[in-house]
Simulated scan of single mutants.
Amino acid sequence: MTLSHDDKTRLAAALEETAREAGEIARGYFRHGEKTSARIWNKAGGSPVTEADVSVDAFLKVRLSQILPEAGWLSEETRDDPARLERTLVWIVDPIDGTRAFLNGNPDWSVAIALLVEGRPTLGIVHAPALESLYDARADGGARLNGAPIAVSAPQGVGGTRVTGPKPMMDTLARRAGPISEMPKVPSLALRIARVAAGDVDAALVTANARDWDLAAADLVLAEAGGALSSLTGDAPVYNRPEPVHGALLAASRALHPRLVEAMTSDESGERRLARVP
């Protein structure tokens, strides 16, 4: 199944309106520099969830189901329904990506929404309400930040590259590729990748165990801005699998990306490693 240009235009407008409404719901609980006003509890495994996550998720489930009733659904805060695996259209949603940042008053959190068509992101939005930043993209339609076109940066080499991500991964890259410019870690994975798309940083690193909802929307924004997201061995993410879990990832411009893959798949002496990241 494919969506026509008119379909994408109509759906993109509805999706942006929905994302902004969702952002306002979340922002009602957010306190800049202070603890959230929302109730907080821990999910199985110990990760936090707030009243805001649940409220935004419920709103998005209703609204997006009205926009495309035939689409499947995968969200961090909803019990998984395997019926999504049989659907051509699937909504992939993270109601608040970067919950720890959100609950501690750090504005680097986002609402991430993607529409998959036959397994690939076709529409995507990463909305950072506390920063008044909305990144959006359509397949073959470019990427924008607050309506203005964006594009990745174009560094000539890995040396001095502005990188955001976990410190251990940045240390590994620096040992194998030479000095890099370490940027502050962005808590929201979707926002971390979107900032590569906008050229605010040159590359982003992500540890293993990210989920579809962390990645799908930002993946499209990055691709439409001239970048690439992949495993450390260069494989593109595959979405809407029974277990929507990913290995370690890197994001960069298409020019820089293969150089980073080469660096991350070499040992300390610079020789290429043959082992693949699952």
Results as ranks from 00 to 15, higher is better:
residue 116 L to A: 03
residue 219 D to N: 14
residue 95 P to D: 03
residue 8 K to M: 08
residue 187 P to N: 12
residue 82 P to H: 11
residue 211 R to L: 14
residue 55 S to K: 15
residue 273 R to P: 04
residue 205 L to D: 00
residue 127 H to I: 04
residue 89 L to Y: 13
residue 231 S to G: 14
residue 239 Y to H: 13
residue 82 P to A: 10
residue 116 L to H: 08
residue 28 G to E: 14
residue 111 V to K: 00
residue 252 A to C: 10
residue 29 Y to K: 07
residue 112 A to M: 02
residue 10 R to F: 07
residue 14 A to C: 04
residue 93 V to I: 09
residue 141 G to Q: 06
residue 204 A to Y: 00
residue 201 V to K: 00
residue 264 M to A: 06
residue 116 L to R: 02
residue 26 A to C: 13
residue 138 R to S: 04
residue 266 S to K: 13
residue 186 V to N: 02
residue 18 T to C: 13
residue 145 L to Q: 01
residue 90 V to T: 13
residue 186 V to W: 00
residue 37 S to V: 13
residue 80 D to A: 14
residue 74 L to H: 03
residue 134 L to T: 08
residue 258 P to D: 10
residue 143 A to W: 03
residue 152 V to Q: 01
residue 85 L to P: 09
residue 52 A to I: 04
residue 229 L to T: 01
residue 82 P to L: 12
residue 138 R to Y: 02
residue 116 L to Y: 08
residue 6 D to E: 14
residue 117 V to R: 05
residue 63 R to Y: 12
residue 20 R to Q: 12
residue 77 E to V: 05
residue 188 S to H: 03
residue 28 G to K: 11
residue 198 A to H: 03
residue 253 S to K: 03
residue 90 V to R: 00
residue 124 G to H: 00
residue 76 E to W: 07
residue 159 G to W: 07
residue 228 A to P: 00
residue 21 E to C: 06
residue 102 F to L: 08
residue 212 D to Q: 13
residue 217 A to S: 12
residue 274 L to R: 14
residue 124 G to Y: 08
residue 272 R to Q: 12
residue 223 A to K: 09
residue 41 W to V: 00
residue 60 L to C: 04
residue 121 P to Y: 13
residue 168 P to V: 13
residue 99 T to H: 13
residue 127 H to T: 02
residue 209 N to G: 02
residue 273 R to N: 15
residue 222 L to C: 11
residue 238 V to L: 13
residue 142 G to M: 04
residue 257 H to C: 07
residue 256 L to I: 11
residue 65 S to P: 04
residue 98 G to E: 05
residue 40 I to T: 08
residue 102 F to S: 02
residue 44 A to T: 13
residue 274 L to F: 14
residue 223 A to S: 15
residue 274 L to H: 14
residue 227 G to T: 07
residue 213 W to N: 06
residue 40 I to C: 01
residue 187 P to C: 12
residue 220 L to W: 05
residue 106 N to P: 01
residue 4 S to L: 09
residue 274 L to A: 15
residue 110 S to Y: 07
residue 17 E to S: 09
residue 267 D to R: 14
residue 234 G to N: 10
residue 41 W to Y: 10
residue 69 P to W: 10
residue 272 R to H: 12
residue 59 F to P: 04
residue 37 S to D: 14
residue 160 G to I: 11
residue 77 E to T: 03
residue 270 G to L: 04
residue 221 V to T: 06
residue 8 K to A: 03
residue 250 L to K: 00
residue 46 G to V: 11
residue 67 I to D: 05
residue 257 H to I: 08
